[in-house]
């Protein structure tokens, strides 16, 4: 039997409001592994279940409140968008020529596994981004045989577009984050940086391209900060934050 490391959980995910599960896209709600922000840089065993229970409920309530607020004014799907989506979905089936989606999939897997895997290096991630850039056209032109009923080759052709986007997002964010933290290990930046702790990386799709921006993490509430030993905090906080914490604890 062949044994190897594999990806089994994604800590990042859709950017949601913690109280309602609402994403930035109006009417889209997310909870569980697909939502980001809950687990920080590493998920501890068992936490995913509590995540589901707490944020599943919040998202359900959030979605219900959203629908109630809409009243009778439900947004409609534009016919044009529907037609565009249908055409895009059918395109791989209608192409006369094109690459086998399995071949492209295999190359995408190999690239991400070899270059943006468990131990990452800046130069390798850059190499991966170049390869992903070349894969973009190939993904757009894959061809699927057969019909629309239970056709795995066609499903893969549709999935590939999203796989490529997610791969690029992961690679761009991994290159940007010049530290090692939780599930993200940079061979060229082996230490955890208190400065980077204060930053979230947010990716979004703008005009068909992945856009990456930094966003400040909300500071930890003082009452929560109090729960930690000062020594424990020295591993995570910047000097300024530590000084503030020391003063606060003295005042107690």
């Amino acid at each position: 039997m062949e044994v190897g490391p594999t990806c089994h959980y994604v800590m990042g995910g859709v950017e949601v409001d913690a109280d309602t599960g609402a994403a930035v896209v109006p009417g889209l709600f997310a909870a569980g592994e697909v939502a980001g922000g809950m687990h920080g840089s590493n998920r501890l065993g068992g936490n995913s279940l509590s995540d589901l229970l707490v944020f599943g409920r919040r998202s359900g309530l959030g979605a219900a409140a959203y629908v109630d607020e809409l009243g009778t004014d439900h947004p409609a799907v534009a016919e044009e968008d529907l037609a565009d989506t249908t055409a895009a979905a059918r395109a791989p089936l209608e192409r006369e020529a094109g690459e086998n989606p399995y071949t492209v999939h295999h190359e995408l897997q190999d690239t991400m596994n070899d270059l943006v895997g468990i131990i990452r290096r800046g130069s390798e991630i850059e190499e991966a981004l170049e390869i992903l850039d070349k894969l973009r056209d190939r993904v757009a032109n894959v061809r699927s045989e057969g019909g629309t009923i239970y056709n795995p080759g066609w499903h893969l052709a549709l999935d590939l577009r999203n796989m490529l986007l997610v791969s690029e997002s992961i690679a761009r964010a991994a290159l940007e984050r010049e530290e090692s933290r939780g599930g993200h290990t940079r061979d060229d930046f082996p230490d955890m940086s208190p400065e980077w702790r204060k930053v979230n990386l947010v990716v979004s799709l703008r005009d068909g391209r992945v856009r990456l921006r930094q966003r400040a993490v909300d500071p930890l509430r003082p009452d929560l900060l109090e729960l930690f030993e000062h020594e424990e905090l020295t591993k995570y906080l910047t000097k300024d934050e530590l000084a503030a914490d020391a003063t606060a604890k003295e005042e107690l």
Partner: peptide, 22 residues
């Protein structure tokens, strides 16, 4: 060596019949 029938069906899918439903 070491493969099971499902592995072979997947190879068939990837190399010869991409629309094989499994």
């Amino acid at each position: 060596e070491g493969e099971v029938v499902l592995d072979v069906l997947h190879r068939l899918q990837a190399t010869q019949v991409p629309d094989l439903a499994v």
